[in-house]
Every structure is written in C-alpha cells, then in structure tokens.
Amino acid sequence: MTNSQQQQIFESWLQEHKGIFFKIVRSYSAVPQDQEDLFQEIAVNVWKSVPNFRNNCAVSTWIYRIALNRAVKWSLKVRKQQERESDEEAIKVLQPVEEKPDERLAWLYEQIQKLDEVDRSLCLLMLDGFSYKEMASIVGISESYVGVKINRIKKHLTEQSKKM
C-alpha cells in the first residue's frame, strides 16, 4: 500500500467515522488540552493501522478497537504525566464547536468518564449499538462477561440518573 493510498483511506475513515473519534476522546478525557492530545494520538494510531486492516470486520469495529486500545493506554499514561506537565502545555489546540450543549448528553459523558477503563469502553460500544460478540472481540473479554458487565453498567447509569 502506498502512502497516498493509506492517506486516502484514513481520510475517508476519518470523514465517515469521526463521531467515534470524538465520542472516545470526550469519554476518556474531560480537560480540553487532554482531549486534543488524545485525539491526535488516536488519529496517528488509526492512520498507522490502515495497512493492517483485512476487511474481516466492519471499519467502525476496527476503529473502535484501535481507538479504545489507544485511549485506555493514554489515560493510564496521562495520570502519571499530568503532575509533570508545565503550564505552557495547557495551550488549547482543539476548540469545541458545539453550539448548544445538551445538558443530558453532558451528564451522560460525565457518568461515562467516571467508569473504569474497561467499563468505559463497553459503555461506549453498548451505546453505539455493538453486539456482545463484537464488544468481546474489541475489548478482549468473554461474551458472557460482557453481558454481566453491561447489565451492571446499565443498572449503575439508571441509578445515577435518579440522583439527577
């Protein structure tokens, strides 16, 4: 695969599935400068993964797998780094363009951010309508365990919504 072919495929993926990028970025990082950093990391990793895509799953599944993997690693790394970051790193590069913030959506993101890394991934996949089988393959746990975890997450979110 040539560089330009890789670039072309990546651009079409980004165009078609940018929602996945943004949802993951927003779920794994609450602070704008972190969102920007994570977005760039995910974009670079998805771009690198293009030649390895073998059409044995949907593109969205592939992107979720790469992006969630990166996001989990990033969030573990960022915890250690955050204390060392200097003020100048706080310059914002990604600017939110959302005009009317939906409060209920913001609440939902807030709740997702509070979940641990694996539950966060499962919650995103569940909300985006992935099957248990697909979730198990992306996250790397058994299908039955996905079922158990999903039930717990649903229960947890419903309980939290009652406190709103």
């Binding site: 590069v93 600017q95 363009v97 939906d102 959506l105």
Partner: peptide
Amino acid sequence: MEFDEMKKIWDTQSNVAMYAIDEEALH
C-alpha cells in the same frame, strides 16, 4: 432515566465535527 432514553440522547449526537483545530494555538 431508563437506559433506552440514554441511548436516544446518545444517538442525538450528530456526526459533524465537535472540535476545530486552532492553528494559531498549535503554532
């Protein structure tokens, strides 16, 4: 709020860019 309602809220997110890149800030 039931989970189905949360799913509906989630689905209202459009696929348009939530962010724009500020080139000046990047520079």
